[in-house]
Computed example of a mutant assay.
Amino acid sequence: MTDTAQHFDRDLIVIERELDHLNRLAKTLDSRFRLPGTSIRFGLDTVVGLIPGIGDTLVAAPSAWIIWRGHKMGIGRRHIARMVANSAADYVIGLVPVIGDLFDVGFKANLRNVAILREQLGARHQAHSAAQTETRAAA
């Protein structure tokens, strides 16, 4: 295995750990709890969002962290923009009493954002693997 391939494999391990961490954070924010007797899940985003005035602002910080980590992992601008739009919708609609909290239960912006990260990083991995295969075949 070449040094480049080993470096890429180490990077993949680091990225997978980061994605697992971000996924746990997103689950805590969006689906940590289950409404008894139903399949309805909600998280701290919904619970803290019940605090008038500051609740939604408090949970905006971890949402911003997920987006920032995506940027640091090299996600493209278009996908970062999608993540920002998800979090912005969650924040703005979340400011509306009751309706915003119901929206939080269904929309799950943080889980959507982690899914975007996984999708884009998976596509990058596939492209790199295909390039390595072509390089090996040409050699």
Rank of each mutant, 00 (worst) to 15 (best):
residue 12 L to F: 02
residue 43 G to D: 04
residue 69 R to P: 02
residue 125 H to L: 10
residue 100 G to M: 03
residue 86 N to A: 14
residue 31 S to K: 09
residue 137 A to W: 03
residue 134 E to T: 08
residue 2 T to L: 12
residue 6 Q to F: 12
residue 123 A to L: 10
residue 23 N to E: 15
residue 92 V to G: 01
residue 34 R to L: 12
residue 34 R to K: 10
residue 14 V to P: 00
residue 56 D to I: 09
residue 127 A to T: 08
residue 81 A to L: 14
residue 134 E to Y: 04
residue 29 L to W: 02
residue 35 L to D: 04
residue 73 M to I: 02
residue 54 I to V: 15
residue 59 V to Q: 07
residue 7 H to D: 13
residue 91 Y to W: 12
residue 21 H to D: 12
residue 13 I to T: 13
residue 125 H to M: 11
residue 51 I to W: 01
residue 84 V to Y: 00
residue 105 V to E: 01
residue 26 A to K: 07
residue 55 G to D: 00
residue 77 R to P: 02
residue 8 F to H: 11
residue 121 L to M: 11
residue 118 R to D: 02
residue 127 A to Q: 12
residue 125 H to G: 02
residue 46 T to A: 13
residue 13 I to V: 15
residue 29 L to Q: 07
residue 63 S to K: 13
residue 16 E to M: 11
residue 71 H to G: 03
residue 23 N to C: 07
residue 41 R to D: 12
residue 10 R to Q: 14
residue 51 I to C: 11
residue 86 N to Q: 05
residue 106 G to I: 15
residue 123 A to P: 00
residue 67 I to M: 04
residue 37 G to V: 09
residue 50 L to M: 14
residue 45 D to Y: 14
residue 102 L to R: 07
residue 115 A to Y: 04
residue 43 G to R: 01
residue 102 L to D: 03
residue 101 D to F: 05
residue 43 G to H: 05
residue 69 R to M: 07
residue 39 S to Y: 03
residue 1 M to I: 11
residue 121 L to S: 06
residue 28 T to K: 09
residue 30 D to P: 04
residue 95 L to Q: 10
residue 109 A to R: 00
residue 109 A to V: 08
residue 71 H to Q: 12
residue 6 Q to P: 04
residue 93 I to E: 03
residue 64 A to Q: 07
residue 130 A to G: 07
residue 64 A to E: 05
residue 89 A to T: 15
residue 37 G to C: 11
residue 16 E to Y: 09
residue 52 P to Y: 08
residue 23 N to R: 13
residue 31 S to I: 08
residue 2 T to N: 15
residue 46 T to P: 07
residue 86 N to Y: 14
residue 110 N to H: 09
residue 47 V to Q: 04
residue 95 L to S: 02
residue 65 W to V: 13
residue 131 A to T: 02
residue 35 L to Q: 07
residue 117 L to D: 06
residue 106 G to M: 15
residue 86 N to T: 06
residue 96 V to Y: 04
residue 123 A to Q: 10
residue 114 V to D: 00
residue 61 A to I: 15
residue 2 T to I: 08
residue 61 A to T: 06
residue 110 N to Q: 07
residue 49 G to V: 01
residue 129 S to M: 14
residue 61 A to N: 00
residue 17 R to Y: 06
residue 137 A to N: 09
residue 12 L to V: 05
residue 80 I to E: 02
residue 54 I to A: 08
residue 85 A to E: 01
residue 1 M to D: 09
residue 44 L to T: 05
residue 112 R to K: 14
residue 54 I to W: 11
residue 57 T to D: 04
residue 49 G to H: 04
residue 104 D to T: 13
residue 76 G to K: 12
residue 21 H to K: 14
residue 108 K to P: 00
residue 90 D to Q: 14
residue 128 H to D: 10
residue 105 V to W: 00
residue 79 H to N: 09
residue 6 Q to N: 13
residue 99 I to G: 01
residue 113 N to K: 08
residue 97 P to H: 05
residue 74 G to P: 03
residue 49 G to Y: 01
residue 57 T to R: 13
residue 62 P to G: 11
residue 41 R to I: 10
residue 45 D to V: 05
residue 50 L to Y: 01
residue 137 A to M: 12
residue 10 R to V: 13
residue 119 E to C: 05
residue 85 A to L: 13
